[in-house]
């Protein structure tokens, strides 16, 4: 199998598992819905207050849902020793990493697309003109989240207390993604001109590139048993 075939097979495998079981995405969507409700209870919000904090709420919800999806990504491989099988793939481990990143990215991104209308409805947002730039922000931030998250998912799945350790390791690392995504989303929702927050998009893109490369290299050491 060539490098790109491995990537394709891993993505295909994860998508098929997800299409047949529908476990990960349904739990992610439902969890995020609950997060939306909890947030709207904990800040009793009028229109004005909602505008201030909504970008933060969106990204906290997305990050927590993303963690659920990322955790499942490798814990499903524990059944029937699939992890060992993955480790034995006669191709660079980076191919497995990239395949998993693509699959995780697809799950999280689709869930975000499904959830965003809920935010629009529940918090009365006006997004029609900014929808393309918001999609770009979601895209860039999700790439960053899944690039680091996939590495940590593979790492934590092989240790004790994995459900606790994944968010503990992941969240400090993705602080730049969170800051940039929140600031850019806030700018887009306020209808600011793009030049006012384009530097956050650049930061997201830089983070994505750096962390995909570094995690690609480090993944070798995580899977090497």
């Amino acid at each position: 199998m060539t490098f790109f075939n491995v990537i394709r097979w891993i993505v295909w495998k994860d998508l098929v598992i997800e299409l047949r079981s529908r476990e990960t995405m349904s739990s992610m969507v439902f969890f995020a819905l609950i997060v939306i409700f909890i947030f709207s209870f904990s800040f009793s919000m009028d229109q004005q207050a909602a505008r201030e904090v909504i970008a933060g709420i969106i990204w906290v919800a997305f990050a927590f849902t993303g963690i659920i999806g990322l955790g499942k990504s490798f814990s499903t491989e524990l059944q029937n020793d699939c992890l060992e099988a993955l480790q034995m793939v006669p191709e660079s481990k980076g191919a497995i990493y990239l395949g998993k990143v693509v699959a995780n990215f697809l799950f999280i991104f689709v869930v975000e697309i499904l959830l965003f209308p809920m935010f629009v409805i529940f918090f009365n947002l006006d997004v029609v003109e900014e929808i393309s730039i918001l999609l770009l922000i979601f895209f860039l931030a999700t790439v960053g989240l899944s690039a680091v998250g996939t590495l940590f998912s593979a790492l934590t799945v092989q240790i004790r207390a994995r459900e606790v350790m994944l968010p503990i390791l992941l969240l400090p690392m993705v602080i730049p993604v969170m800051i940039a995504a929140v600031e850019a989303t806030k700018g887009a929702l306020n209808g600011d001109p793009l030049t006012m927050y384009s530097q956050w998009l650049e930061l997201l893109a830089i983070f994505d590139v750096i962390f995909t490369v570094v995690s690609f290299w480090l993944f070798e050491f995580v899977m090497d048993n």
């Binding site: 590495l151 790492l155 730049p176 800051i179 600031e183 750096i210 570094v214 480090l218």
Partner: peptide, 25 residues
């Protein structure tokens, strides 16, 4: 040892970016 080293290196790469983004923020 291996996993800890992976985490430390990732943190090393991340810290300048964190500092940079927080400064901007």
């Amino acid at each position: 040892a291996r996993y800890a080293a992976v985490l430390a290196i990732l943190g090393l790469v991340d810290l300048p970016i964190i500092h940079f983004s927080v400064e901007w923020w």
